[in-house]
Design a protein around this nucleic acid. Sequence first.
DNA 1: AACTCAAGTTGACATGCATCAAGCGTCAAT
DNA 2: ATTGACGCTTGATGCATGTCAACTTGAGTT
Lengths: 252, 252
Amino acid sequence: MTQRKVISFDTIRVACKNCSLSQLCLPMGLAPEDVERLDSIIKRSRPLHRGDHLFRGGERFRSLYVVKTGSVKTYAPSEEGGEQVLGFHLPGEIIGLDAIDKSCHACSAKVLETSAICEVPFQRFEELAASIPSLQHQMYRLLSKEIGQDADMLLLLGKKNAEERLAAFLTSMSSRLSKRGLSPTDFYLSMSRHEIGSYLGLAVETVSRLFTRFQEDGLLRVDRKHVEVLNLTALEMMAGAPPSSAHKQRSN
Amino acid sequence: MTQRKVISFDTIRVACKNCSLSQLCLPMGLAPEDVERLDSIIKRSRPLHRGDHLFRGGERFRSLYVVKTGSVKTYAPSEEGGEQVLGFHLPGEIIGLDAIDKSCHACSAKVLETSAICEVPFQRFEELAASIPSLQHQMYRLLSKEIGQDADMLLLLGKKNAEERLAAFLTSMSSRLSKRGLSPTDFYLSMSRHEIGSYLGLAVETVSRLFTRFQEDGLLRVDRKHVEVLNLTALEMMAGAPPSSAHKQRSN
DNA sequence: AACTCAAGTTGACATGCATCAAGCGTCAAT
DNA sequence: ATTGACGCTTGATGCATGTCAACTTGAGTT
């Protein structure tokens, strides 16, 4: 709605070796001929649209998915329509790693905006990884990275207050977008306030009030989904070490 | 202090093929000769004592560690002495998976009671896994399982109230102990109330009050670290689906 | 035994954030 | 333009849980 909706077929079909994300993604550190082999097992479908599912909780696990363009949220649907957002995924990030264990998806994945996705059939991938040590190593690294990020998130939910949580969310988005060649201080959020709240363990209203406050304090300029970060270092401070000499709730 | 402190040298030196945990651990699904090969790279040290560290945050990553007997906590130390407990690890569980990515430990690991630990040098392990497909697969499964458990924990911290959190903690302990051949309804907790609170994102006082309340309600009998579960199904109900018709805070 | 210290418990109080409720801007369809 | 729906914002209120403080208990030490 706000951003480029037009994605040429060429962009979607681009091979790993020509993909600008290859240094964040599975091909990282691979020899060119191995990138070619990896490329040959990857399926690239037509772009998906806002609201489409990559998979739903309970479905059999067959493939990992990598965001090429756009963004995806993963969430655990609960009985009464409620949901816990587990993560937001940007280009180059892998989705479905939690399903390898049980061969069954425990969560659902839904695209937040028009997105191109690479599908990696897992069984074929595993065979390939067995014959390419650097691919196996990269896979271990990516799995490990995911675990490390989850630990950061546990810390956030266990110890940080609302202000610190939103600051951490914004600085995380900033740095991830920056790694992908986009502006670290001017971006569009593809998720709703409600989804941000669910992800951070906060009510929508709290998220909204914090956006307002950050704006009043000169940290941000916000217009709906468009965010301009005016004082990134202040946000980083706020997200990082506990304020230590201010609000000190939750120092347990 | 409460349990068997005497661990014979034979118990520590037991090889994977004779280890009662092999079906929860790395050797799961391996052919006997491959178990032998795995066994040959594993180092088994003398037992560690309460308070000893397996590793500390910042140290270089060289090995994974598997609990053979006893228990271990992982935690992220923060500047001012505070710490966030990230997990408690029982026999058969692997520690250090989050460090593969950066080749450096982001958290610390400390044993909670006298414990025997198997050390798995990671580089040698990786070489071995490349030549044993079922070991590689098991490693993927274990990494994936960790990610899935972290997601459960995110849900707990993001959506559940104090009562649900402690109930979830207790039922989780119960089922994990049960898988290891111990009683699901009568066990000793090796961690302090403070550590439980940190893990669950609650203040010590809240944990203490909940233990008292659960006891009053006839769900538990508690004597310091000794817990007898009197009504496991009630605890599971409480931990699982949101109460739906009672306290309904945090249905965001 | 008497002492010490850490861990746990319990009560009183404070507050951050959820909840409830109402209003507003934006977008899409008519 | 009109309508309706939805997402977002803002204000008022209440509650779950954190914080502070005092006391108890148990384990180790002398």
